[in-house]
Amino acid sequence: MAASVVTITSGKGGVGKTTTTANLAVALAEEGFKVVCIDGDIGLRNLDVVLGLENRIVYDLVDVVENRCRLRQAMIRDKRLEELYLIPAAQTRDKSSVSPSDMIRICDELRNEVDWILIDSPAGIERGFRNTIAPADIILVVTNPEVSAVRDADRIIGLVEAEEKGPVKLIINRVNPALIKRGDMLTPDDVVELLAIELIGIIPDDENVIISTNRGQPVAFEAKSKAGQAFKNIAKRLKGEVVPFIQLDDKGDFLSKVAGLFKQGGD
């Protein structure tokens, strides 16, 4: 199977791109796929620490581009999951050391070897963004239910559409049911109505994300955490499964439309 290239982007920083990339990589690898994730945030690398692989870096993306190593040598294999790899970003270089055509070439080289290539984008709409969008087959736009994050997501979606890339799908991260219940947070429906693109995931605001990031052990490893479960659901939707979205019940808790879905997904 030729790999699909999935780029995770947002416009605004800090909305959860790197967290999403790491967790989707883990969730897809747990589904039995061979997954490579690429840190496209050159100069501000983070995917390595979120995945807990920071001590294993020898070569990075810029070393591959500048022919100091072969692609294989820059792929760090995760020890927890057989088929999960990371290509880290260079930390001491800037975005201009990689071009969109370098990214396309690297992804093309990987396409026949793996099932999924996930690319984490930097914040912004400059070179780094264009690098990560260039090879993408699917673009996941991450936003938070807040005015500035939604506005920046709209801008990114417009840019992606102008480049005729896509499909573009939306992930709403850090949804807080208690705030929604009080009327102090945009609902997922509001955000989807404003941005008018297809929704692929709703991730609750969950302290387990911070705890798991502290440990370098993405929350998708935790079958019982709400955020981990939500990431697993996105992985299933990416591979084509129909998974109902989590719903807010009248107590303000997350509930699944289909009873037992959480248990089922946690297997």
Partner: peptide, 10 residues
């Protein structure tokens, strides 16, 4: 409610 204001403004 602030969420309604956010939506209108957005």
């Amino acid at each position: 409610q602030s969420a309604d204001e956010a939506k209108e403004r957005l």
